[in-house]
Nucleic acid binder design. Structure first.
Lengths: 125, 125
DNA sequence: CTAAAACCTGACGCTGACGTCAGGGTCAAC
DNA sequence: GTTGACCCTGACGTCAGCGTCAGGTTTTAG
């Protein structure tokens, strides 16, 4: 371990990113097209990613599953990458947080509704 | 109130169903096309719905919001309409219930993740 | 009686996150 | 030197829940 702890982890190719994050290669290219990630290029044109990209991709999947769009995720990214954040950026974070919270509530009431129905159908077999 | 309590509530047209349920007329037609609701027809061909249809449409909206497809909702319908239910039908209900529960959990963890990020960004303005 | 509002049947359009096919380079292994 | 795994760039396909336009009939209000 040198004083300047720049171990310079080796860049990885798109296939490894996809496997490690559990998505398709096509998806990773799509994320780049949407401006969510960026890659260096090898002399022959192949994409080379920092290993940390895998965590980003996992995060994207989580946000997609929560109903966010690529555009919205892109707007939140500056809050994660840089140390300082804009007030507008923090507002976006809170807005999305509230949206997800509302969705959780909706799902919970849908769940309760289904449970009611299940109870009734169990009573009248 | 007669002995046979068949008040025979008047049938309503598609526009009233849509307004009462808070959806578009197009949506109601779509639900019929998907086999979720059925309508009588006036001599001139206009759709006539029982007032209870409104509640069904609201229910559909809730299920759509929970991520169910028309096909899945259609499979659950016999559990609501008839007194007796099939074991397979009850299985569908439980399957969908579990799916929604899983989705709630996913959203909750996404929410926690966003809250983490919000905390960090608030610490480093 | 007439004009607006509401209804009808097609049928094409839209959005978003990819899947998938076409056609073609690159690179280590054997 | 060739085979096979991996990579590249377009570009069209998919699915679901509607939106929307076209062109025509019906009902309702005044």
């Amino acid at each position: 371990m040198t004083i300047t702890e720049v171990a310079a982890e080796p860049l990885i190719r798109i296939g490894e990113v996809a496997r490690a994050a559990g998505v398709s290669v096509r998806a990773v290219r799509y994320y780049e097209q949407q401006g969510l990630i960026s890659a260096e290029r090898s002399p022959s044109g192949q994409r080379l990613y920092a290993p940390g990209t895998v965590d980003y991709v996992r995060f994207f999947q989580q946000m997609y599953a929560a109903g966010l769009t690529s555009r919205t995720i892109a707007e939140m990214l500056p809050c994660m990458e840089s140390g300082h954040t804009d007030a507008a950026q923090r507002a976006i974070l809170r807005t999305e947080r509230d949206r997800i919270q509302a969705k959780v509530d909706d799902l919970q009431s849908a769940l309760d509704r289904l449970d009611e129905i299940i109870e009734v159908t169990n009573a009248h077999p």
